[in-house]
Design a protein around this nucleic acid. Structure first.
Lengths: 125, 125
DNA sequence: TCTCAAGATAGATAGATGTCAAATTAGAGG
DNA sequence: CCTCTAATTTGACATCTATCTATCTTGAGA
């Protein structure tokens, strides 16, 4: 159902990065071409709020009906934005009965974060 | 010369954030509206590479002629992308003689990073 | 002052994008 | 089987965007 698992940003998996990849060495044309669509996916006020709403919702997932209610936009429009986020690999979804639930794909947002700025890497350990 | 200093993302200055603001609590409509243009500015392969090229260039700044040479695009197109980045507050520039130099506005990229993922905050302390 | 080169601006155009109304699909429950 | 509701898909449309060519601005140097 959920298309296929693209290997999103595996290129930026480097763990002990001294600094943000973007300021370490020039992004290759290929890397830039892979990254841009991801940033494009989050570069919209509605989609940013959708991501945030999903992430903050209890259980880490949210029903489309909850999401739609948070905006003054029609259901098709919300559906469209969710599709964009899903195709970018940022979120995934599942139908449970009448409702469809969405959740964040773990790691993807963090990887984008790591590209822009210095990162915790291995964090608390 | 450089228009005016907009108070970019001052809203996300919170220091001891437990986690990425985006997953802590739902982004407000206003916050989303302020953030989206910034992500939009970096959501382009050419602009991502421009940022990266500028950041990695010695001295942390680069001349337009260096940047233009790195692409197979016309000078006006590069000029356009630099303008987009500058208007978003990501970079700034100065003319020195015949050449114009661009550099990253410190902090902005880091603040965007902090919104997407867990952050070092106060780092080494 | 004239000329040359670096860079920006203006205008045009093809393609992408956000939104909505209408139609479609898919469960749930009589 | 029928109907109701949740959600997606389709098609249309207005707007935005990336790119180019042509033109303009600005500083350096002869």
């Amino acid at each position: 159902m959920s298309k296929q698992r693209l290997p999103i940003l595996s290129l930026v998996e480097d763990e002990g990065a001294c600094c943000a990849p973007l300021v370490c060495e020039p992004l290759s044309e290929t890397e830039a071409a892979e990254l841009a669509p991801l940033f494009k996916a989050i570069a919209d006020p509605v989609r940013l709020r959708l991501l945030s709403l999903i992430a903050c919702h209890e259980g880490g997932e949210a029903c489309v009906c909850d999401l739609t209610a948070a905006f003054e936009l029609t259901a098709p429009t919300i559906s469209h934005h969710l599709k964009v986020l899903k195709q970018a690999g940022l979120i995934d979804s599942e139908r449970r009965g009448t409702w469809v639930y969405y959740w964040l794909n773990p790691g993807v947002l963090g990887r984008l974060s790591a590209i822009l700025g210095p990162r915790v890497t291995a964090a608390v350990s």
